[in-house]
Design a protein around this nucleic acid. Structure first.
Lengths: 204, 204
DNA sequence: CTTTGATTTGACCAACTGGTCAAACTCACG
DNA sequence: CGTGAGTTTGACCAGTTGGTCAAATCAAAG
C-alpha cells in the first residue's frame, strides 16, 4: 500500500481510475455480482496492482459509498426555509431530476444497495439521513400549517420526490425501451413540475 | 430430471418449495449474489436434489420471472376503457400499491433486474410490455383529449404510478427506517389518492 | 414381498474468486 | 549514473460455486 504521506501523481491518477471503474462495475452488477478482476480491467490495471491501492473489494465499495452519500443529499439540504415554499419544492424536484440524468450510475448504485435491504448502509440511513429528513419534514409541515402549500404527509411527499426522480435513472433500461426514440428527459421536467404544482398549489 | 409425464405429488411439492425459496433468495441478493446452495437450503433440499428438479440456477430464475411478469401486468390490463377515467386510474394506483404491500419480493426481484440493465428481460419488455403500454397510453390520451382528466404526458403518467407504488416495496428498508414506528402503508393509499386526484381532476 | 421407477445423497470436479507474495521494474532525485 | 522508494506483475493459494455422477434409498403397484 502507498505510504501515509501525500499521494504521488501516480497514486492520484490510479485511485481515481479505480473508483471511476468501480462505479461503473458496481452500479451495473451490484456488489456481489462484481469481481475485482472486472474493476481492475476497467481501470486498466492488473488485479494485484489494484489491490496495491485498495486493501480489498469492500474497501473500494465503502470509499465509493461514502463519497456518494454526501453529494446525494445536497439537493435536499439546499431546501431553503426562507424561500417561497412551492418554488423551493419545485426547484428541489428539478435538482433531483438533474442528478438522475447526470449521475445515473450513482443513483443505481444506491438503488442496488437499498433494494437488497441496505446491509451496508443501514447505519448511515438511520443516522445522517434520518436527521435530515426529520428536519425537512418539519419544514414542509410548517409550510402546510401556514397554508402556503396544500396538505400532504410530509415524509411521503419526500419519498414521492425521490421515487419519481430516481426512477428515470434506476429504471432507465425500461423507460428508454418504452419511450422509443423520445428522450425521457425531454418531457420529464415538465411532467414533474405540473404534477407537483397541481398537487401543492393552495386553492387560494 | 423428472420424466415428461404428469408431475407426481412429490414433484409438485418440491418444485413449488424451490420456486418459493428462490423468490426469497433472488429478491434479496440478486441473481449473481444468490447461490444454489442457499436456495436449496431454504427449500429444505440438498443441492444435487434441487438440481434434480431444475437443470440449472438460470432455469429456476427464468421460470420465476416468467410467472412473475404475467401477474405483474394484470393491474394495468384491468384499466377499463369503459369506466369513469379518474376512478379507473385511482383504482389502478391502489391495486399497484396493494401489490407492493402483498408481494414485495416480486417487486424487488423485478427491480433488481431492471436496475442492472434488464439483461435477462430486455426481450420481454420490448415485446409484451411495450404493446400493453402503447395501448394504455392511447387510452389515457383519449381521456385527456375528451377533457375527462387533466392533460399530462401519458407514458410519464404510467411511469409515475409504477415508480410511486413500487417504491414502497423496493425501498422498503429505507422507508421503514425513516418512518420509525409508523407503518408506511397506513398513509400511503391516502397520499397517492390525493396526489393523483389533485393532479388529474379537471378544473371543470 | 418384489420390482421398477422416482428420489436423494456423498463425493467429486473444473472454473472462478478474493487476496498474497516475492521478485522485478520504474521513477524521481541527489 | 545510482539508489531507494514507489509501482507492477506472474505465480500462487484457499475458499466458493455451479454442476455431475454413481450409488443408495424410497414409494407404490402388482
Amino acid at each position: 500500500m502507498p505510504a501515509d504521506r501525500a499521494p504521488t501523481r501516480i497514486q492520484k491518477k490510479n485511485r481515481a481510475a479505480i473508483l471511476e471503474a468501480a462505479l461503473d462495475v458496481f452500479s451495473s452488477h451490484g456488489f456481489r455480482g462484481s469481481t475485482v478482476d472486472q474493476i481492475a480491467k476497467a481501470a486498466g490495471l492488473s488485479k494485484p496492482n489494484l489491490l496495491y491501492y485498495f486493501p480489498s473489494k469492500e474497501a473500494i465499495f465503502n470509499e465509493l459509498m461514502a463519497g456518494l452519500l454526501d453529494t446525494w443529499l445536497d439537493p435536499l439540504r439546499a431546501l431553503d426555509p426562507e424561500g417561497e415554499p412551492l418554488e423551493e419544492i419545485l426547484a428541489y424536484v428539478q435538482r433531483k431530476l438533474q442528478m438522475s440524468r447526470d449521475f445515473p450510475r450513482e443513483s443505481r448504485l444506491y438503488a442496488n444497495e437499498i433494494v437488497q435491504g441496505a446491509p451496508r448502509l443501514h447505519d448511515v440511513i438511520a443516522a445522517d439521513l434520518n436527521v435530515l429528513v426529520e428536519e425537512k419534514a418539519q419544514l414542509l409541515q410548517g409550510w402546510m400549517d401556514a397554508g402556503r402549500i396544500n396538505r400532504a404527509h410530509p415524509k411521503h411527499l419526500l419519498f414521492s420526490i425521490w421515487s419519481l426522480t430516481q426512477h428515470y435513472a434506476d429504471f432507465d433500461a425500461q423507460v428508454r425501451t418504452l419511450m422509443g426514440d423520445e428522450d425521457p428527459f425531454d418531457a420529464a421536467p415538465q411532467y414533474l413540475e405540473t404534477l407537483y404544482r397541481r398537487m401543492l398549489t393552495p386553492k387560494s
